[in-house]
Simulated scan of single mutants.
Amino acid sequence: MAGTVASTVAFGSLPTPLGDMVVAVTEEGVAGTGWGDPSRLRAGLLDRLGLAETDDPGRTAAVLDQLGDYYAERLRVFDVPLDWRLTSPVQRRVLGTLYETVPYGRAVTYGELAARSGTGVPARAIGSIMGANPIPLIVPCHRVVAGNGLGGFSAGEGVESKRRLLTLEGYLQPMLDWD
C-alpha cells in the first residue's frame, strides 16, 4: 500500500463496550476511528477526508478483527497500516511519538509526551493534539494522562471511556460498581 494515493475510503463498524466503533480505511491505511452514531461518524469522516466512499469489507476486515481482539484482551499491539492525512506535521510527530513509545498498559503525562516528541509544543497544548487525534484507540491518546489525574478525553463518553480503556489495559484497577 505504500506509495499509493488514496482516492476512496471504506467504512466498517463493530459494537464495543464503549459503543459502536467506526473505522475509515483508505488505500493507505486506517485514517479515522471513533465511537458513537455510525451514520454521523461516517458523514463526518467522509467530509473531512474528501474522498469517495467505496463498499469494500475486505479493506476494513483487518482493523475490525484487531479491534475485536483488543476488546477481548487478545491483542496488545496494532499492526494495521495508518493513513495520517488528517493530521498536521506537528500533530503527526506528537501522535507518532505516542504510537511508537507508549505501549499497552502504560501511560505518559502530557508533559512527558511534549518532551519526547521534541516538537517544542508545550504540555498544555498536547491535550489539544490528543483531542484532535483522528485515530483514537489505535493511536492511544487514552494513554496520555495529567500529572495529577486522568486528564480529559474527547472520544466515546469522555473521561469515563478513558478510564475503561486504561482499566482494560491494566493501568488502572477496576471500579467496584463495574460489571
Rank of each mutant, 00 (worst) to 15 (best):
V121F: 09
P122S: 10
P140E: 06
G34P: 03
V23D: 01
L150R: 05
F78M: 05
R124F: 10
D47Q: 15
P103R: 08
Y71V: 11
T26W: 00
D37R: 10
D65L: 14
L46M: 10
D83C: 00
V30K: 01
D37Y: 07
T119D: 12
P38L: 04
T54M: 12
D55F: 13
A72V: 09
A24D: 00
P103S: 14
E53P: 02
A72D: 12
T119P: 09
V80R: 15
A107L: 14
G29H: 04
V63K: 05
R85M: 06
P81D: 04
T109W: 02
T97Q: 07
V144T: 04
R76M: 10
G120P: 06
L86A: 00
G105T: 13
V80A: 13
I126W: 05
V121R: 11
A115S: 13
A62S: 15
R74V: 14
R42M: 14
L45D: 08
E27G: 09
I135H: 03
G50I: 00
G32S: 11
A43M: 13
R40A: 15
I138F: 07
D37H: 06
L82G: 05
P122I: 12
N133V: 06
V90L: 08
G147T: 08
R48Q: 07
D79T: 12
T60Y: 05
Y104C: 07
A31R: 00
Y110G: 00
P81G: 05
G29A: 00
Q66T: 09
G68N: 03
D56Q: 07
S88Q: 12
T54S: 11
Y99N: 13
L49V: 05
E112N: 12
A62P: 12
V102W: 08
L45Y: 07
L150P: 02
E53R: 06
P38T: 09
R92T: 10
A125F: 09
T101L: 10
I135M: 04
P134L: 00
V23Q: 02
V30Y: 00
G58L: 14
Y71W: 12
V25A: 02
G111I: 11
Y104M: 04
R74S: 14
G149N: 03
E53T: 06
R106F: 13
R48W: 03
L86V: 02
V63H: 05
A107F: 15
